[in-house]
Simulated scan of single mutants.
Amino acid sequence: MKHPLLMWRAVLVAASCALSSGGGVMAAQGETAAPRNASSAAIASAASVTTAASVLSTDAQGNVAELTQLIHDAKLSELRTTYNGSYGASLFFYPRQMAYYVALFQDKHFWRVIRTDDTSRAESMYAGFAQQTAQLADVEIRRMQLQAQKAYLEDIIAMSTDRAKRLQADLNVARTQQARVDDYQRQTQGEAAALRMEKDKVQAQLRQVQGEVIQLQRQTEAGLPPRN
């Protein structure tokens, strides 16, 4: 694994090559993409292209350009780095001059860089910058949380809508089948009533025929000795 500052240096060298080839500052910004999950990535994200452009610019002045050049030359030691959202703070040590650089950055851009020879002041400024990143990231983190909650609720709505459609489909089937059953029941009841009437008519006919049979039997047996 490369040393963090070596990875910074690689980022800055790549940006320098892009600028020297005529790509300009915007091209260098487009070509730099470093991971942020490691200590080296913390530095690479902070320095990135904006600081590289500052080094190569003839008008570049101040601590930002000085820190960037030292990173480019691999002369610094990274002591601490804190991330909060896209904001970060780093504390660097320059052994050759016994100096400290305290940097505040946001989304691949150095924001503030303070140089001091006082160890206590360097630690204090770093703590202040780290606290500042936490405060600055509050809105960003809250936005991320709200975005996640919104997406979660949208997923629930989508699932609930799909469930409602399924239930409505089942209800439509049930209603259609219920209507068919009702029609069948009415038809069956009508047929049963008609059959009941037919049965009563047939029974009446049966009683009539049976009566006629009895009368004919009596007539046939008239004058004959009675049965035992």
Rank of each mutant, 00 (worst) to 15 (best):
V64C: 02
L56I: 06
S54K: 14
S54Y: 07
A46S: 00
A33T: 11
S45T: 07
T58Q: 06
L56W: 08
Q29A: 11
N37E: 13
T51Q: 07
V49Y: 10
A47M: 09
A53D: 10
E31Y: 12
L56N: 13
V64G: 07
A65H: 00
E66Q: 13
A53L: 00
V49G: 09
T50I: 10
S39W: 00
D59S: 15
A47K: 01
S45N: 07
S39K: 06
S57C: 05
V55D: 01
D59F: 08
A38L: 13
S48G: 15
V64K: 05
T32W: 01
E66T: 15
S45L: 09
T58N: 02
E66Y: 11
P35Y: 07
Q61M: 12
S57R: 05
N37T: 12
A53P: 04
A44L: 00
E66I: 08
G62V: 07
S57L: 06
V55I: 15
A60I: 02
I43L: 09
R36D: 09
I43M: 01
A34W: 03
A52T: 03
S57P: 07
S48W: 07
A42N: 03
S54D: 05
A33S: 03
A60D: 10
S40V: 01
A53S: 12
R36S: 13
V64P: 00
E31I: 15
T51I: 02
N63A: 06
A65N: 00
P35D: 08
A60L: 04
A34C: 06
A60K: 07
V64R: 09
N63S: 13
A52F: 10
G62T: 12
G62M: 08
G62C: 11
G62F: 09
L56P: 03
S39G: 02
L67C: 04
T50R: 10
T32P: 03
A65G: 12
A52L: 03
L67F: 04
G62K: 00
A33W: 12
A41D: 13
E31K: 09
T58C: 07
Q29F: 03
T51S: 14
N37C: 11
V64A: 06
D59G: 06
L67H: 02
T58H: 13
S45A: 14
N37F: 08
T50W: 10
T58L: 13
A53Q: 03
T50V: 00
P35C: 13
V55T: 00
E31M: 15
A52E: 01
R36L: 06
S39D: 00
